[in-house]
């Protein structure tokens, strides 16, 4: 019996990274003003190494100050949300789990909205109040949803947990709408918190996303083997010697941080974590050692394309990014649900 490598091989990394880079370059070059692809690449390259900027038809600032930080944020958000989706689907052994289907994203939005409406801030860091509240509420939401699910149906069947997630989302959304209606002068409009957008993201946003992804995404990646066992069954995971409680808590905290950070920057961008891992799983199989790295790249690509569509479809009018992802996501959801029912494990 020869031993096969379970993780990603170098050429697979190269392939996925290459695809991500091409999507990235195309995303930056297209928009209300089209910049030819070679010019875009040269512009970014030269700016990166502080070389003199080339002569282009449009002002470099469109690329460097507007599109580049936005597309970077989009790519990082996509990677983070996909990783979260994949992690939750493994942890709960539920192919329909995602921040949006479980209500975790709505919970995070509520946290952010409360922070803004009631002026909860941290003295030294202007943006931190919103973010910390979003993370806290994401974590609380996960705890509430899981506690309810365990209480109602110990086996945590797919249907129960999704049903609870949907009900929880509606409940949280109603509270959120209530607060926004009363504090409409302070809080961004409802559509941002229900159908997010990364329009106007800054390099600072991208940097925060990158930091969160490096630390908490890294934690999730390091738990690939444990999550494989959870995906087979939580009891089996305990039987083979996994500290199930600790792994569950660690993964839940990491997921909450990533979703909280994403939501406080880009609002609720739903279904990314559902669609990407599902598509990636069809290529890589369910082993998280492959699924996670592939989901990172896949999520970045998926969300960049969705963002491109949101910008281009009704140009010059821009759609919220969440509209595009939810449109695709809802269709994929029905497809997965149908397949899960057919195999009889839903």
């Amino acid at each position: 019996m020869h031993k096969r490598r379970e993780g990603f091989r170098p050429f697979e990394y190269l392939l996925f990274a290459g695809l991500t880079f091409v999507t990235f370059a195309v995303s930056v070059s297209l928009g209300s003003v089209r910049v030819p692809l070679p010019d875009t690449v040269t512009l970014i390259w030269n700016a990166l190494w502080r070389l003199p900027l080339p002569e282009t038809a449009v002002s470099p600032s469109i690329i460097l100050a507007v599109r580049l930080p936005r597309v970077l944020s989009v790519a990082l958000t996509g990677a983070a949300l996909s990783l979260c989706g994949g992690a939750m689907q493994g942890l709960l052994r539920n192919p329909l789990a995602d921040g949006s289907t479980l209500g975790v994203s709505s919970g995070a939005s509520l946290g952010a909205v409360i922070a803004i409406a009631f002026g909860i801030t941290m003295p030294s860091l202007p943006f931190a109040g919103t973010m910390v509240m979003a993370i806290l509420f994401a974590f609380l939401s996960l705890i509430i949803i899981l506690a309810l699910a365990y209480r109602l149906d110990y086996s945590l069947s797919t249907n129960t947990i999704i049903l609870i997630g949907v009900i929880y989302s509606m409940f949280v959304s109603s509270i959120m709408s209530f607060i926004i209606t009363y504090a409409s002068d302070r809080v961004r409009q409802i559509t941002f918190w229900t159908m997010g957008s990364l329009n106007g993201s800054s390099y600072g946003n991208a940097l925060i996303l990158l930091g969160a992804l490096l630390v908490f995404g890294g934690v999730i990646l390091l738990h690939a083997r444990e999550l494989n066992a959870f995906a087979i069954g939580e009891d089996n995971a305990r039987h083979i010697g996994i500290n199930t409680r600790r792994v569950k808590l660690t993964v839940m905290i990491s997921v909450s941080v990533l979703i909280g950070v994403s939501v406080s920057i880009g609002g609720t961008i739903g279904f990314v974590g559902l669609v990407t891992p599902h598509m990636v799983r069809m290529i890589t199989g369910p082993n998280h050692k492959k699924l996670f790295p592939a989901s990172l790249f896949g999520g970045a690509i998926f969300l960049m394309l969705a963002d491109l569509l949101a910008r281009m479809l009704l140009n010059p009018v821009e759609l919220p990014l969440g509209v595009v992802t939810s449109f695709v996501g809802a269709i994929v959801f029905v497809f997965i649900f149908h397949r899960a029912r057919k195999t009889g494990h839903a």
Binding site: T158, N228, I232, I240, G241, G285, P286, N287, A340, H345
Partner: peptide, 19 residues
């Protein structure tokens, strides 16, 4: 036992060495 994901037989057996 029932499965939701298409792990291979080998992957499931190898997890036995986790301890």
């Amino acid at each position: 036992h029932y499965f939701n994901y298409s792990f291979t037989v080998e992957e499931v057996i190898r997890l036995g060495r986790y301890a």
